[in-house]
Design a binder for these strands. Structure first.
Lengths: 233, 233
DNA sequence: CAGATTAATATGTATATACTTATAGTTCAA
DNA sequence: TTGAACTATAAGTATATACATATTAATCTG
């Protein structure tokens, strides 16, 4: 089985993939260690390491020091989906982009938001409701809370000129975020804002972003009917 | 600025991140090349390469040969979301899992499906409708088409014992897939199958998977109200 | 025999060196 | 002035070597 020459990490990766797919190496099974594979493939261990590391990152292999490398039992397929800035998404489709601020005020958030923002009771946040339009038609509206303490400069920013999301992306570095995707049924408010019928199913993204010290912002994006989010693996 | 010692790729990465976040290196701007950074950080070029490559993969840097490395202008944040096998997802919540096959037949698919499956007109596929239940309550139902030509053995598989998805994951290696997430409004059929009210908003995942030669399967998963898909970055 | 100690081992990482490859920029020719 | 040919450059990769680190397995103790 000393198959020819696999002297680039891509060819090594391809060969390992082939063996996994052909069940030569079965799920849960340990595969030979890096040193052995390097000899068999006629390449350096670092090359094997690169190939296996990439496969482990994509979820097909499980690796542990000393224990070794095994074919993943239940390969969790990971789709990486790009989170777009709404303006780019709309303009990318060749449509015109516009947004309007429906309301902007300082207020103490309801309990649910406060929990997500991890702020003390009574602390006021900036509450912003924005509608984004594609070719003049409602596309998505965002109900956003911003921790003004974590975001110096937001108070004086002109959020009519640049949407809060864009302003934040451009000005406030963040370290992590979480995303929830779901569906909701349009009520009177959504129907009015998005110019759709009450009772329609709407796609919803909830997103929080944070840095080391604070939760920066949490936003709920409710999309007009027909929105589709797409990704490939 | 010859800042101390950055002699592991993680510390190099952290320092580069710091400079990006602090705007020392601004979006769109070229950063010094690997060799220069290696000298400045007091480490090998390979170490810098590892750090920058990781940052490029996560979308914060743009790299091109000869041109160099620049800070990404619009950092596309990528969330990697794990595509779960439904049984694991349900059992992971501590609920009991059960599934039933509502219908299974060979049929020529409608045009939309045929386009996705890339089959010739008249070719019959396996059409499978399955309901998955959590603690006995409808959780999601799947409307699936399988290219039997691409999937040897599926005809004789007992899809009552093991769901089609699980059978496929365990038996048919695939190379790529695409995913679409959207919302729909429950019609009479969805309301009946999912035991929900007509007019409720439902979360929908459409997914196709393929290997080198064929589109293997395409499935539309319609979730009962309340479903939320979550991910972090 | 339970629990602590030690050894063995596979992956993880760092480094110097060398070569490859894509491509931006320049030069040259039609 | 366009475009083809060339060149210089920065990232990309491969390799040998060395050492670090996590973790299993074996061994030693009480």
């Amino acid at each position: 089985m000393s198959a020819g020459e696999f002297n680039s990490w891509q060819t090594v990766q391809a060969e390992v993939l082939r063996r996994i797919n052909s069940r030569e190496w079965r799920p849960g099974e340990f595969i030979p260690n890096e040193a052995e594979l390097a000899v068999e493939f006629g390449c350096a261990r670092a090359t094997v390491n690169r190939a296996l590391r990439a496969l482990a990152e994509s979820g097909l292999l499980d690796r542990r020091r000393k224990a070794g490398t095994r074919v993943a039992l239940n390969p969790v397929r990971k789709a990486t989906l790009a989170i777009p800035v709404i303006r780019y998404e709309i303009e990318g489709k060749g449509q015109s982009y516009r947004h309007t601020v429906l309301s902007k005020q300082r207020a103490a958030p309801p309990a649910g938001i406060r929990a997500r923002m991890r702020t003390e009771p009574g602390v006021k946040l900036m509450h912003l409701v924005t509608l984004h339009l594609a070719d003049g038609k409602p596309y998505v509206f965002g109900d956003r809370w911003i921790n003004t303490e974590a975001v110096p400069g937001i108070e004086t920013a002109d959020l009519n000129a640049q949407s809060a999301n864009e302003w934040l992306v451009a000005n406030i570095p963040f370290e992590g975020g979480d995303f929830t995707f779901s569906a909701m049924t349009a009520g009177p408010r959504e129907a009015e804002i998005l110019a759709c019928k009450e009772g329609e199913g709407l796609f919803v993204i909830e997103r929080s972003t944070w840095n080391a010290a604070h939760v920066i912002t949490t936003v709920r994006l409710t999309f007009a009917p027909g929105y589709r989010m797409h990704t490939e693996i």
